[in-house]
């Protein structure tokens, strides 16, 4: 099995996210069956795995989606108990989830929505509300970075957006709200190659020494554009392998089955 923990051991930077033995699921059905993960500032972690392995559950639990239940384990975000915080507080504290299926908000204009979100986040950080002109300038700059027209501001949130527009819009919000930890739930799914490049550029623009990214993906493709520091493989609710970028390439070549078998063999021992 591929392992590479040497870097981590020497890493003196702040762990932004620590998961210990996290067990969670929906309606009493356990999906995550003991996940351990440590993410430091400056790092990009890719979580890969076959469908149904618990990847989306993992990031949704971290963001605080109410449908999910936590059965056991601990999660610390910047040293604080993340699981005890309501979802909106997590967001204000700097945890951002880019949705796999961004939700349509009928009748809610994008401008108003972004304004509310940015005001909430800035107020929490002790910053003043932006004047209308500064807000407009900032939003339009972020829209432009993601190849989106300012006309979007007049539209209802995600309503009538194409699949690609929805994903670009998620990353646009990431850049606008400027959190510390980005959880990206299959942000690459359903994108053509041009859209994928725009989205990847956005993620790369977000990266930095005081940021961290957990990127959930089914495919290795996006990792050609967003180079991860670590790759983890999630199967049946457990991380069965961790490594560097080469692990993703190995998965691309060999699929997930060999890891599943290895994991099962490991459990039998």
């Amino acid at each position: 099995m591929v392992r590479r923990e040497t870097d981590m051991a020497e890493n003196k930077r702040e762990p932004v996210l620590v998961l210990r033995g996290l067990r969670a699921g929906i309606g009493g059905v356990e999906i995550l069956r003991g996940v351990d993960l440590t993410v430091h500032l400056g790092e990009v972690h890719a979580i890969m795995g076959p469908n149904g392995s618990g990847k989306s559950t993992l990031v949704n639990v971290l963001a605080g989606k109410p449908d999910y239940e936590v059965y056991a384990g601990e999660v610390y975000y910047r040293g604080r108990d993340l699981l005890s915080m309501p979802p909106d507080e997590r967001a204000r504290e700097g945890v951002f989830l880019a949705f796999q299926y961004p939700v349509e908000l009928p009748g809610v204009r994008l401008r108003e929505f972004l304004r509310a979100a940015l005001d909430a986040v800035r107020e929490h950080r002790g910053l003043e509300k932006l004047a209308v002109r500064d807000f407009n300038r900032l939003v339009q700059e972020k829209l432009r970075e993601m190849g989106m027209d300012a006309e979007f501001l007049k539209r209802n949130v995600n309503e009538g957006f194409s699949g690609g527009e929805k994903k670009r819009h998620e990353i646009m919000q990431l850049l606008l709200l400027d959190p510390t930890l980005a959880l990206l739930d299959e942000t690459d799914s359903g994108l053509d190659i041009d859209a994928l490049k725009v989205v990847a550029q956005g993620i790369n623009r977000f990266r930095g020494p005081d940021k961290a990214v957990v990127l959930v993906t089914h495919y290795q493709r996006i990792l050609n554009y967003v180079q991860p520091d670590y790759v983890h493989v999630l199967i049946d609710g457990r991380i069965v392998a961790s490594g560097g970028r080469e692990l993703a390439q190995e998965l691309e070549a060999k699929g997930y089955e060999w890891l599943r078998q290895a994991a099962e063999a490991g459990r039998r021992d």
Binding site: P86, F99, V108, F113, A116, A120
Partner: peptide
């Protein structure tokens, strides 16, 4: 829809209002 708003830092009352 509510969770989407909360996940952006918008408080529950403002989220409902919107």
């Amino acid at each position: 829809a509510l969770f989407y708003m909360l996940s952006r830092g918008i408080g529950p009352v403002l989220a409902q209002t919107l």
